[in-house]
Design a protein around this nucleic acid. Structure first.
Lengths: 119, 119
DNA sequence: CCTTGACCTGGAGCGCGCTCCAGGGCTTTT
DNA sequence: AAAAGCCCTGGAGCGCGCTCCAGGTCAAGG
């Protein structure tokens, strides 16, 4: 199975090498396999997981939550719980989208008001 | 004209007293009027401005940008420029809403995939 | 008056999420 | 086999946006 050097993993995942190491230290990534010389060798699976991590980070999931999620992932039996967590996160994302749009609406009202003042 | 104590201004604006002081130090608020004893007395105008500040912060405008905007506000002649900035900000807000929704869509696909794996 | 509670200032501290660095070991190319 | 470029570790540092603190002053009720 193909593996990826840290630089390649960074390229593919969109995280920096430092961030990948940081995530591993934090327990968000399971310990990455090593070459005989001690260099990391990321697997396809690692990259798949990183793809989900990216999605979760981009939607505002905090590092601490991601870590808890990753810990759950160590136990196959928790699949249902993990999906429940993702769905809960999805609800929070929806709330923040809604909140953002509400504030955007207010912003537009303010702009309209300024425009009426003769801009 | 009615004025507001720091506690009242915090209550109305939704910012903490410490944050109000911080914003004043940073130049996001013009220097707030004082009582004879040196205590702050916020005006209706201050609260109106704070309302806009809250809207901008909630939509992700950084402190530094807010400061620049506040500096512009000191000069009446910049009204058009300020409105332009708000509209530019509105575009960025729209972009982040869109990005968030795209990632949410991906998240939902992931959830759907897990569901297919038998959850 | 005197107490109590709100407010003042300057500056330190914090939580988050990285990012960078020194000092050293691999590995690939020539 | 030597140079050049990746990668290693542990730990320090940073940018943001507050938040808290000490040590004092002011204001309002009894």
């Amino acid at each position: 199975m193909a593996t990826y050097s840290p630089a390649q993993a960074a390229e593919v995942s969109g995280f920096s090498i430092d961030t990948l190491r940081y995530y591993e230290r934090e327990g968000i990534l399971r310990p990455i396999a090593r070459t005989s010389g001690g260099h990391r060798a990321y697997t396809e699976d690692d990259l798949g997981w990183l793809d989900l991590v990216h999605c979760l980070r981009d939607t505002g999931m905090p590092i601490a939550d991601l870590k808890r999620y990753a810990e759950l992932s160590l136990d196959e039996a928790t699949l249902a719980a993990r999906v429940a967590l993702l769905e809960e996160h999805d609800r929070r994302v929806q709330e923040s989208v809604d909140a953002l749009r509400r504030q955007q609406e207010r912003l537009r009202e303010k702009i309209g008001w300024y425009r009426q003042q003769g801009v």
